Amino acid sequence: MLNPSQLGDISALQELCERADAITLKLNWSMLKSRPADAKLDFFHYSGDMLTGFLALYPLGGGLEVCGMVHPDYRRQGIFTNLWKDAIRSANVSAYKTILLNTPASSSSGIGFIESQGGVFCHSEYQMKWHDDGQTVAEAYPSVQLRSAELADMEDIIAIDQEGFEMSREESAEIYSSLLQETGTRPLIIKRDGVTVGKVSLEDTGSDTWIYGFAVKASVRGQGIGRSTLMLIVSEAIARGRDIWLEVAVQNPNALRLYESCGFKVMRQQDYYEYMASQ
Rank of each mutant, 00 (worst) to 15 (best):
S5I: 10
S5D: 12
I10Q: 02
D21W: 06
A22Y: 11
T24E: 14
L27H: 01
A37S: 14
K40F: 00
F44M: 06
D49V: 11
G53N: 05
G53K: 05
P59L: 05
G62K: 12
G63T: 10
G63A: 08
E65Q: 11
H71D: 15
H71W: 08
D73W: 07
R76S: 12
R76V: 00
G78R: 04
F80C: 03
L83V: 08
R89F: 04
R89A: 14
A105L: 09
I114S: 00
E115D: 05
V144N: 05
Q145H: 03
A149V: 05
M154C: 09
D156P: 04
I158L: 08
I160D: 01
Q162D: 02
G164E: 07
G164D: 07
E166W: 11
E171T: 04
S177D: 09
S177K: 10
E182S: 04
E182F: 04
R192M: 10
D193L: 11
T196P: 04
V197A: 12
V197K: 04
V197C: 15
D204Y: 04
G206I: 05
S207E: 12
W210G: 01
S219G: 03
R227Q: 14
M231G: 01
I233A: 13
L246M: 14
C262H: 10
K265I: 02
R268K: 14
Q269K: 15
A277W: 05
